[in-house]
Design a protein around this nucleic acid. Structure first.
Lengths: 144, 144
DNA sequence: ATTCAAGATTACGTTAACGTTAGTTTTGCA
DNA sequence: TGCAAAACTAACGTTAACGTAATCTTGAAT
């Protein structure tokens, strides 16, 4: 359906605020798959690939994950999608469920990690908030 | 009051799960103040300093801040405390309030940054949660 | 057909945040 | 007093995640 418009290197780097070196590097370490090329060798991206890259950048920024950790997360996601895709038409039913459980457990672990992070952030925010509040009260009200 | 027990290097590293090199490094780059020493030159910490170090480690872990950013945050906190401490007995009232506002604004900015981070984390958690949910539904329920 | 900005490859450079010797001195304890 | 464990300083090593420079090739517009 979506004919996936051909995006040039500049398109991608500009829209995502990164440099070409970053894309080269991600491809180099296998974080991104080898992308399509023009006959002359220039890389050609599409929207799906752009989303994938954006996802990686979010995982880095928001989660503060290393590229290695991101690779693991991506792998977990892909496995889950693969299993979901091949869910109908599989022979070994028990094995099928086992694989799905396993992949789901990995996602669950990631979610748990996020939850922990949010709790800690919440606590830290609380601390800063109280400090600020005391300062404000000091300025506004007089004593006690 | 609290006579601040003398903590040895090993006490600190063991309780915080870091190595001595880390403390040396933090001191080296001025993230930690020069600490008390024994007559022989060994470092002596106290509970307050330990809390300070723990705070730094939390900022690193939870916020994912660089040591440079942490230095800025610590400075903002200290300035605020200083102003609070010297609040009574100051001559220039307007200047006093201006300083406090400025320090408060810096803390506010940090808090804002934390809030943004939490929102993004929340969104990401949502995404993962939905993916997981779909997988679970796939396994449990049949079609539809 | 020409041009010239944009892309490719290769390879060395950089920064943060420690790790890891190495060699010397201090300390707490038997 | 003697000694092994723990600390100190100084200096070089390491890893991740790109930056940067050089040189060559492509591709879109004139």
């Amino acid at each position: 359906m979506t004919a996936s418009a051909r995006l040039t290197m500049e398109d991608v780097t500009e829209r995502l605020g990164i440099t070409s070196r970053t894309l080269h590097y991600y491809e180099e370490i296998g974080l991104l798959p080898d992308v399509a090329r023009t006959e002359g060798g220039h890389r050609l991206y599409d929207e799906e690939m752009l989303n994938r890259i954006a996802h990686i950048l979010r995982l880095k920024q928001v989660l503060g994950a290393s590229l290695q950790e991101i690779r693991d997360i991506l792998q977990a996601e892909e496995e889950l999608e693969q299993i979901k895709a091949s869910y109908r038409g599989e022979s070994d039913l028990d094995e099928r469920d086992r694989l799905l459980d396993e992949a789901a457990a990995r996602l669950q672990a990631i979610i748990h990690h996020i939850d922990e992070k949010m709790e800690k952030l919440q606590a830290m925010r609380q601390g800063f908030g109280e400090r600020l509040e005391r300062a404000r009260r000091l300025k506004q009200g007089g004593s006690e």
